[in-house]
Simulated assay, not measured.
Amino acid sequence: MSTIKPFYFPTTATFVDDSPTFLSNLCLQLDPQLAFQLFSSPAEALQAVNNAPRPGSAEEPLFAPFRDRTDEDVAQQVISLSVNTVRNQVYNPLRFRAMSVVVVDYDMPGMNGLEFCRRMTDPAVRKIMLTGKADEHIAVQSFNEGIIHRFIRKQDAAAIPALNRAVRELQSAYFDNVCHSIVDTLALSEYAFLRDEVLAERVAELSASLGIVEHYISYCPNGLLMLDNRGHAYLLIIHTPETLRGVREIAVEQDAPAAFLAALDSRRSVPYFWETEGNYPDQCASWEDYMHPATTLSGRQDYVYAVISNPPGLDLERVTSYDAYLDKLDRDMERTWSSKS
């Protein structure tokens, strides 16, 4: 089933092989938009993989204990999801350093690829084993046991295209694993649109046309904050009949003019009141300035959506772009490999 991930951002792939020559040749053939690190030492690689940052943080976890103040029974404690924390990952300059996929050679001195995979501590990280002909039966057995997720034969003529494709697919699978609990938590909320296949297809089309590489669920109004590789931001506002009704009711309470209510009812435009958490401002004299062209879509329910380029009110100046991370990664890798040669 096609769904919208609550959040997604480019992550780093790790390549481990005891041959520096093989790694040097390999890196020239990888997808140029792929962030990666190369290790000729399995021990160094394992330490880097196990210490890599993960989505969310200890300071601001995605899930946190919640208990009603009037409830003194700790046994009644439940876990709540902070949508604010999900979106705030965009401000974390280390987010791209999360290692989602490891590509490891099997035949290495000191620690073979199978042992390497078994000693990894994050079960969400996807694993690809590169094998020679003599290692193939080991790779097949490891795949069947669920220790690795793919194996690719080094000697295959199409090994590099297959590797690039597998890395991309498994990076997506990494987020499916990480986001599974979040999607389940939001399934019965106003974010149920995450599981709408029709809307997911439209979001994929919009992302492709805008060059989006990362996105995060947003709120007030609900939708997705999306960014391209340069860090240019777009806010995709997603309304349902229920959320539009809420916007209208508050606007009526605020004595909004009939012209605004008519514009809202037409569903040809929606407001982005970024200064008042999505609500119609008190004594708003220039409501037209907050309106944006909208499109309707029918999926599991009806939607009205709008795309706003460079949305105000989100402090986007402090966001590190994926391009900036790739440039830094290239500089760091050049220094590291120069010192080893």
Rank of each mutant, 00 (worst) to 15 (best):
S2T: 09
G132F: 02
L264M: 11
N51P: 00
A233K: 12
S266G: 08
I237G: 07
T276P: 06
D289N: 11
A259C: 06
A166K: 00
D107I: 04
P221Q: 07
V90W: 00
A98S: 14
V307L: 15
A306T: 12
Y280P: 06
E214A: 06
D18C: 07
V319K: 07
I308S: 08
H149V: 08
L186I: 06
I4C: 09
R168K: 08
R268F: 00
L314W: 07
S181G: 07
Q254E: 06
P61Y: 11
Q29H: 13
N88K: 13
Q141S: 13
A134K: 03
N112T: 05
E253W: 00
A43E: 14
F193M: 14
T131I: 13
A166I: 00
S309Q: 08
E214H: 05
A35G: 15
Q301H: 10
V104C: 15
F143L: 15
L34K: 02
F63S: 09
N279G: 07
L236I: 02
V74W: 02
Y106I: 15
T21Y: 15
Q155Y: 03
F36K: 12
S266D: 08
L28H: 10
N88T: 10
R245L: 14
D122K: 02
A173W: 01
L210S: 01
A263V: 11
I217F: 07
D332S: 06
M120V: 10
H137K: 11
S266H: 11
D68T: 10
R202M: 11
N222S: 15
Q141N: 12
Y106L: 13
Y8L: 14
K154I: 14
A58G: 03
P32V: 01
L224K: 08
F9N: 03
H180S: 14
L94H: 09
T3W: 08
A173M: 05
V78N: 12
Q29E: 11
P123A: 12
D323R: 09
V74G: 01
V270K: 04
G132D: 05
I308N: 13
A204I: 02
L314R: 14
R67G: 10
L186M: 12
C179R: 05
D282S: 12
E44S: 10
R95A: 00
F22E: 12
Q141Y: 05
A256E: 00
T85P: 04
N92P: 00
P293V: 13
D289E: 12
A157S: 13
S142Q: 09
A158Q: 14
H232S: 09
N310G: 12
L236H: 06
E277Q: 13
F63C: 09
H137T: 14
K154D: 04
P161F: 01
